[in-house]
Design a protein around this nucleic acid. Structure first.
Lengths: 337, 337
DNA sequence: TTGTACGCGTTATCAG
DNA sequence: CTGATAACGCGTACAA
């Protein structure tokens, strides 16, 4: 059933049918109803490919993320998909895994599918060496590129992120001010947000004019039990620490397991701060204090910016949100923050 | 840059260019190279919409799920997307939420986008009243429909699931045999798998010829703290229970919080069995014993069946996998299972 | 081995 | 208000 069939049954031309479908042009109420009835009877659906060919869009946005099963990413996907759908766009999802080449390949694949834009979920897409981000800038020459939780300054690239540096510095400063000096900063990846969090951690020490032992900064990409083991070995090497500031909640849970293995009282002897305010926080005991990085707002902002750009209007290249710390059972000194 | 531009630059017709692109027909090695070079120079990408229009496929599969941020669904999405991609298909994701109408609406929307097939993730799509599943049968008249973790017998519908009934019966029987008689079955939804799990629970009592107090079956759809409160109130109402068999890990964590609030020793005084073997299991203490329902196999099977169907070959309407129980710290009587 | 011409189902631009 | 017709870019019979 195509537009010709409908036009024949209605005794009009395809142009009129097309006008009725798209609602815009003026058609007599009588023929409009007739055509609508016939379309309903035959439950006609316009061919999306033909429409795509003519309009050069199928109203789809490419979503690129490392791993959709990650708790943070999966929430982002949920919010983004919902917001896109509300704007009549569909989401093509593509999970790249950790590899750099795969990221490039899958991004190209999305572009080949002629998506209207691409959303990069997660700061792992933004590397420290500018040249390595070149492929993103190139992609932005074809379609708008939205980056969630990362920042890249380039034409047609729009970033929506939370101020990881600031909140990490605030959290770290709060620790220092409350007498916790033996801090450990544990982060998973040399990503944009990882680097920003690290800056915040260092910034707090600088602001307090305290020396910072580089051994207190640990880049570690492991599971919960591996993280626990890692901390046990760090402690065995003689480093003393009574507080862990983690780059994500999973690392924080690892730290919690470490603290329990050491039979520390939490939070009086040992404190832990997670990041992302994920479900990890509420299934352990004590429950995990964590940074709420406003993911839902972030996602909605990202889609709002995208919609603006897609309709030819300008949008800010960077939208930054401030984060909050949610205090639960693994700390007791954020009451006043 | 389209096929005409390329053909002009190469001094050949578009047919030849098309042949080179699709690799199949025989073209002289010389012109083939020339065309390939020109395509590379101009980094030409065939227009996906035009191709879709002609071939009536854009190699996309619709993924429908209630909530991509759910731990179980997000893992399913990851596995499915990966398997689809390996077969050169892209995934359009659509999250419906809990509403029935929304499910119908979004499914229609996917079909309107002319996806090559639809994968329904999660047994919540399959209702007890056949008439309510009608829209799925209708969809299967247009494209193959794959159901993950649910079962619906209908033409062109292919289901990949784990034997929830059997494992739940095994688990329940094991409890009964080890002297745990005061069981509570806690499940979230009247979904296909929910009903199957319940059958298993009841089946174990029937097999042991034990009476089953209906108060021991609790249908409850709440968060972790809500689940804890619910169990506290159930206990306050006078029901005695020392074991919770939960339909998912989140409910199980709620039960764990309840047990801790009651200061029961786990697992000697109180046992808990979760379901899905999700990340929830390893972030609590003691860690949660849980049913591993072989999600990755399930997803791979689903995609394998789909690929078979899409290439015109037959596939089983139902692929059922057996599950395992993974014993961790909340039980101590599955060693021999 | 290569080229011509048509079909795919729309949208949009003209005339009328 | 309506109709004829040209794009849109590709795949592919059929012809050469």
């Amino acid at each position: 059933m195509n537009i010709y069939d409908i036009s024949k049954k209605a005794g009009v031309s395809i142009a009129t049918v097309s006008r009725v479908m798209n609602g815009n042009a003026r058609v007599s109420e009588k023929t409009r109803q007739k055509i609508l009835d016939i379309m309903a009877e035959n439950d006609y659906t316009p061919n999306a490919f033909a429409r795509g060919l003519g309009l050069n869009t199928m109203q789809t946005i490419g979503l690129l993320c490392a791993d959709s099963s990650d708790q943070f990413f999966s929430r982002a996907i949920y919010y983004l998909e919902r917001a896109l759908r509300a704007n009549h766009y569909d989401a093509i999802l593509s999970c790249t895994g950790a590899g750099y080449d795969t990221r490039m390949e899958y991004l190209k694949r999305l572009l080949a599918k002629k998506v209207d834009a691409v959303i990069l979920i997660g700061s792992s897409f933004i590397e420290a060496v500018p040249e390595r981000n070149r492929y993103i800038v190139d992609a932005a020459a074809e379609v708008p590129v939205i980056i969630l939780n990362g920042y890249l300054k380039a034409p047609n690239v729009y970033c929506s992120l939370c101020d990881d540096r600031e909140i990490t510095q605030q959290v770290t400063s709060a620790c220092l001010e409350h007498g916790r000096k033996e801090l450990l900063f544990l982060y998973r990846a040399d990503s944009y947000s990882g680097r920003r969090k690290l800056e915040g951690f260092k910034g707090a020490f600088a602001a307090a004019e305290l020396p910072l032992d580089p051994r207190r900064i640990i880049l570690f990409n492991g599971s919960i039990p591996e993280t626990k083991e890692k901390l046990l070995s760090v402690a065995a090497d003689g480093l003393i620490f009574d507080t862990v500031i983690a780059g994500d909640d999973e690392l924080a849970i690892g730290a919690l397991k470490y603290a329990k293995a050491m039979q520390f009282d939490i939070p009086s002897q040992f404190s832990i701060i997670g990041y992302n305010n994920s479900q990890f926080c509420i299934c352990c005991e004590p429950e995990l204090s964590s940074v709420d990085n406003q993911l839902e707002f972030c996602c909605n902002n990202a889609v709002a910016a995208l919609m603006s750009v897609l309709s030819g209007k300008p949008a800010p290249g960077k939208t930054m949100l401030s984060a909050n710390i949610l205090e639960r059972g693994t700390t007791d000194f954020f009451k006043f923050l």
